[in-house]
C-alpha cells in the first residue's frame, strides 16, 4: 500500500520492512512529495507522519540504529555521507534490517 505526503515538488519513495510497520502505523511504501535535500530530511518527514516508525530506525541521538541499514538507490548511506547523503528527486530510500541476530 502506498501513502503520499503531498507538499509539492519532487518525489521520493521510502520502502520500509513489514516488521517495522506492524505496530507503528507506517505503510511499507511511503511516497514523499516535496523537496528533501538529504536522506535525513526524508526520514524526518517520515517521522512527522509515523513517529514510532522513525524511532525504530533512529535512536534519540539521531543515529541510525546499529543493526539497521539505509540505502539510496541501492547504495548504503554508511559508505556515502550518512544521513547527509543527497536524496535527489525520484530516488528510492530502502530501510532494511542488517544481517545480525543471535
Amino acid at each position: 500500500m502506498r501513502e503520499g505526503l503531498r507538499d509539492g515538488g519532487g518525489v521520493i519513495t521510502l520502502e520500509l520492512p513489514k516488521a517495522l510497520c506492524s505496530d507503528t502505523g507506517a505503510q511499507s511504501s511511503v511516497v514523499l512529495d516535496g523537496l528533501y535535500g538529504t536522506v535525513g530530511d526524508a526520514l524526518d518527514a517520515l517521522g512527522k507522519r509515523s513517529p514510532r516508525a522513525l524511532e525504530r530506525i533512529m535512536d534519540e541521538r539521531g543515529s541510525v540504529r546499529r543493526h539497521v541499514n539505509v540505502f539510496v538507490n541501492g547504495e548504503s548511506i554508511r559508505f556515502l555521507d550518512g544521513l547527509g547523503t543527497p536524496a535527489p528527486e525520484g530516488s528510492t530510500i530502502l530501510v532494511l534490517a542488517a544481517v545480525s541476530g543471535g
Binding site: 525504530r56 540504529r65 539497521v68 534490517a97 545480525s100 541476530g101
Partner: peptide, 10 residues
C-alpha cells in the same frame, strides 16, 4: 527490545 529496531514498551 529488537536487535534491529530497538527497545519499546508495548
Amino acid at each position: 527490545n529488537s536487535m534491529h529496531w530497538g527497545p519499546t514498551v508495548r
